[in-house]
Computed example of a mutant assay.
Amino acid sequence: MDTIAGTKSSLTWAVHISVVLLVALWLFPTVGLLVSSFRTADQISGSGWWKALVPTEQSLTLRTAAPSEQVQEGALFVIEGNLYAQEGVAPAPISAWGTNARDVAAYRPGDTAEMRGGERITVMENGDYRLESQVEMAGRRGERVFVTATTPPEFTLDNYRYLLFSNSAEGMGKAFFNTLTVTIPATIIPIVVAAFAAYALAWMDFPGRALLIAFVVGLLVVPLQLALIPLLKLHLNIGIGKGYLGVWLAHTGFGLPLAVYLLRNYMVGLPRDIIENARVDGATEFQIFTKIILPLSFPALASFAIFQFLWTWNDLLVAKVFLIDATGQTTVMTNQIVELLGTRGGNWEILATTAFVSIAVPLAVFFAMQRYLVRGLLAGSVK
Rank of each mutant, 00 (worst) to 15 (best):
F146S: 06
L219E: 08
R116W: 10
L341V: 00
R161P: 01
A379E: 12
L294P: 01
A305I: 07
Q287W: 13
V89M: 08
N265F: 01
R272Y: 07
L228W: 03
L224C: 04
R344W: 10
K51P: 05
T156W: 00
A305R: 07
Q336I: 05
V145C: 02
A52I: 02
R116A: 13
V15F: 06
P230V: 08
S9K: 13
L228P: 03
G246S: 14
K320F: 15
P109Y: 09
S10D: 09
A5M: 07
F196E: 06
L62F: 10
T56H: 01
F366H: 02
R344G: 04
A319Q: 14
P29L: 05
T187G: 00
V193D: 06
R39D: 12
A5S: 08
K320R: 12
I4Q: 11
F366R: 03
T7R: 10
Q134E: 14
P55N: 13
S381Q: 10
L34A: 15
A92K: 04
F304N: 13
L83D: 07
V71P: 00
S18A: 15
H235W: 15
R130V: 15
A52Y: 06
V247E: 05
V222S: 02
I274K: 06
E69M: 11
P295H: 09
A65D: 12
V382D: 05
F307K: 00
M267E: 08
L373T: 04
G118N: 04
A352C: 04
R272K: 08
A75H: 04
F289C: 04
T284I: 08
T99M: 08
T40S: 15
E119S: 10
V338G: 06
R63T: 14
A305E: 09
A364C: 06
L131I: 11
W313L: 12
K291N: 10
P91F: 13
R130I: 15
V361N: 03
A101N: 12
F289A: 04
A326M: 09
Y107F: 15
A52G: 02
V31T: 14
G171M: 07
K320A: 11
L323P: 03
A75G: 03
R209E: 12
M172V: 00
T40Q: 08
T112H: 05
G253H: 09
T312A: 12
A319L: 14
L22D: 05
G142I: 13
I293E: 03
P271V: 09
Q287T: 14
S18F: 14
K291W: 00
M1Q: 11
G253I: 09
T3S: 12
P257M: 07
A379I: 03
L296F: 04
